[in-house]
């Protein structure tokens, strides 16, 4: 949904459009585009025989996009719900907009239902809400990193999902988590290592101080991040129904290059390791 070409880079496929591309066997990818979504909507539901007659869509599209509240959002979320309803896929994974926008996206059918009293769009909000609000069919996976603002925003987002939409959080994923370096006893050694620095320098050269500093810096980073994850965990445990004791799934910091198929496969492996290797029975795969 948040198209900046990041998904195309992740799969290394040049460019993605509104028409799905098969990027790997049985795996299709598309980039959302509200104008194409409008075109498809009009073709499917309004059944205009000559679409050309309504004029250049792009210039009149302003109307839909800017002036009418919720309409742009519903074109995006409507397309997703349509694909779910038609069962074109077994699972649809949505790279949603940034956390500030996701609530208005998921909440669009409700906004439309409140604001629009009559008309075709209003009639279609109910089946969208049925899909979005059903925890067996729709789940929101909230992704964060172990830092102050991302954790605060995650807590804020989980609260807003509960208060402003009917959607359910299904997973909280902490990305780029640094693994622990030292046990507590080892940490005590690290803390006093300066007392033996000249012994290290004799063997490994003067730059060894930099190497030790790097370890301390990484460890401080890790423990600061762990405190933020503890804050998140504590909130999840005390939040009642909103997250219902959701565990935090962690993906380690990979220290690899920013994007591309290599990172995708490493993260996929990390997620597989974290998740239950035995798939629970009775889930229809839309989780």
């Amino acid at each position: 949904m948040d198209a900046k070409g990041a998904l195309a880079t992740a799969f290394d496929v040049g460019e993605l459009g509104f028409e799905p591309t098969e990027v790997a066997p049985q795996l299709h990818a598309m980039a959302m585009n509200t104008e194409d979504s409008l075109r498809e909507y009009l073709r499917l539901f309004v059944r205009i025989p000559l679409l050309g007659r309504i004029g250049p869509l792009a210039s009149t599209f302003d109307f839909v996009a800017d002036a009418a509240p919720g309409v742009k959002e519903i074109l995006g979320v409507g397309k997703l719900c349509y694909e779910v309803r038609e069962r074109h896929y077994d699972l649809i994974v949505v790279d949603a907009e940034a956390s500030g926008h996701i609530v208005s996206q998921i909440g669009a059918p409700k906004v439309i239902a409140d604001l629009v009293q009559v008309g075709l769009v209003r009639d279609q909000t109910q089946w969208m809400l049925d899909i979005l609000d059903d925890p067996m069919r729709t789940g929101v996976a909230v992704v964060t990193t172990p830092e102050e603002m991302p954790v605060t925003e995650t807590i804020d987002l989980l609260g807003r999902l509960r208060d402003e939409t009917g959607a359910h959080a299904s997973a909280v994923i902490a990305n780029r988590v640094l693994p622990a370096m030292f046990s507590r006893r080892e940490q005590a050694v690290v803390d006093r290592l300066d007392d033996a620095m000249e012994l290290l320098v004799d063997v490994a050269g003067p730059a060894v101080a930099t190497v030790v500093d790097a370890a301390r810096l990484t460890e401080t980073r890790r423990s600061t991040g762990a405190e933020h994850l503890d804050r998140l965990r504590h909130w999840l445990e005390s939040s009642g129904d909103v997250a219902d004791g959701l565990p935090i799934i962690t993906v380690p910091e990979l220290f690899s290059r920013g994007s591309g198929p290599r990172v995708v496969s490493l993260v996929a492996q990390a997620l597989t390791d974290e998740l239950d290797p035995e798939p629970p029975s009775g889930v229809d795969g839309r989780g």
Binding site: M181, V189, L193, D195, A196, L199, L200, V212, A214
Partner: peptide
């Protein structure tokens, strides 16, 4: 090195050795 550092810090040699190895191997990532 582990022997001399352990003696200097009065710490168990096993821990010192583990610490030095961890510091050295994790340096590459950073």
């Amino acid at each position: 090195l582990a022997d001399s550092v352990a003696a200097r810090l009065d710490a168990p040699r096993k821990q010192v050795s583990a610490v030095l190895e961890q510091i050295a191997t994790r340096f590459d990532d950073v």
